[in-house]
Design a protein around this nucleic acid. Sequence first.
DNA 1: GTGGTCTAGACCACG
DNA 2: GTGGTCTAGACCACC
Lengths: 135, 135, 135, 135
Amino acid sequence: MFIELDLQSEVPLYKQLADQLVEGIASGTLSPGQPLPSVRTLAADLGINLHTVNKAYQALKQDGFLEIHRKQGVIVQPGSQPSADEAFRQRLQRDLRPLAAESVARGMSEADLLELLRTLYRQIQNPPSKGGTSS
Amino acid sequence: MFIELDLQSEVPLYKQLADQLVEGIASGTLSPGQPLPSVRTLAADLGINLHTVNKAYQALKQDGFLEIHRKQGVIVQPGSQPSADEAFRQRLQRDLRPLAAESVARGMSEADLLELLRTLYRQIQNPPSKGGTSS
Amino acid sequence: MFIELDLQSEVPLYKQLADQLVEGIASGTLSPGQPLPSVRTLAADLGINLHTVNKAYQALKQDGFLEIHRKQGVIVQPGSQPSADEAFRQRLQRDLRPLAAESVARGMSEADLLELLRTLYRQIQNPPSKGGTSS
Amino acid sequence: MFIELDLQSEVPLYKQLADQLVEGIASGTLSPGQPLPSVRTLAADLGINLHTVNKAYQALKQDGFLEIHRKQGVIVQPGSQPSADEAFRQRLQRDLRPLAAESVARGMSEADLLELLRTLYRQIQNPPSKGGTSS
DNA sequence: GTGGTCTAGACCACG
DNA sequence: GTGGTCTAGACCACC
């Protein structure tokens, strides 16, 4: 699992981290039940504060993507992952709306926009490195 | 042009405002060259701070959606609207990526996700109120 | 609203604080829409760190008891308070069970135990200081 | 005596264990003078750490529910069980108070709350499995 | 060793 | 001024 943080980004570090962990889960790079690095270890590896890592972990625990145990540490939700419930779909719409609007305003065609999202979806679901030909 | 702000949202007011102005441009509710209310007027109408309106206007000017003149006031970009250039597409990808990832992780199908975005795109491009009986 | 923290208690400070705020809401001492002190102010008043106050506020926001706005600060949920849904009742049972068990083991009668809870409930719902005769 | 531990719970293992032993005593499943498994045996049976079992036993000895002898091993307090003294009632109140408060805040009626506790009390005092066909 | 909590102090975005 | 984020360093409970 390779994590890359952009310290210059306006996106908070803890969110960048959480997003990439979700992407790892989505792609299968992180499997249910799989242990994640301890907050300290990951913080050291990424060169950030352990509280920042902890905030990302807590957020994902809240969303049902992770479980946090006392000794066992942090593991990917071994049961069923959270579902695309109504609350999620509404959040999704709220977040997609301004992106769709700006695409329209900039004259980007529906086909172009959908193609872009489709490509992303497939890249995430089946990343190049997954089951790849390791050298 | 009807603006609706959610004071309880986690989305900053200036961004909500900017987003809705872009949506107005996308839908054609706001036409090129059309004058917008002054910062003062709009702030009063919406019951928000001058700075907030100004920040939204400045951001849209920066993006090329608006022109701000000292005397004339604020008008929708009368020339060519900003295009879906590479910079925009990259920003789009960066913003769509975590949404696509969480959709995959939550087991939302590609078709479902694309359908949701398609519906949004069409709603914005051709809103129900467009072509209405406005005076 | 009078807050009292026990620094010696094994109960985390942020939970003590959150509990007392909920009690304030329950008793009506804190009314819907009422503003709460800023994290900094309350932290200073209580002599604790602002992060501790923030943690309590965030937890209550998560549960739907509070709203946190950018400028307005923190206010008691002006809409409908969270309800006693199934999730809450299960949590309640889980927490009450060991207390009931120890009461039985110590030979405390059902009537005694229920009376104790009833008294608490009424004290909270209608505290002595509410509508009292202020000197 | 059937012990069930939830490794994913936020409640510490030693407390889950102690709680269930108390519940066993309350229900009569564990009778005064009855021997309990050794720390080693119980830890092995439950698949947990020795320290964890020991901590639970020590806590219950401290409260007067158990006696621990070097040779004899651990037995349920053969004399009089600890009583519902003032210290216990105060602890009980302290623990019940936030639960009562949140119940009030969530609009749960006094009758509902008391009924819930009454049901728990009776379940514990006279569990379904009690009076069964155990040898 | 793990995560949980608390403190202290800093900078930034928002309005 | 507000809350949001990040850092640094500390102690404790749990296992």
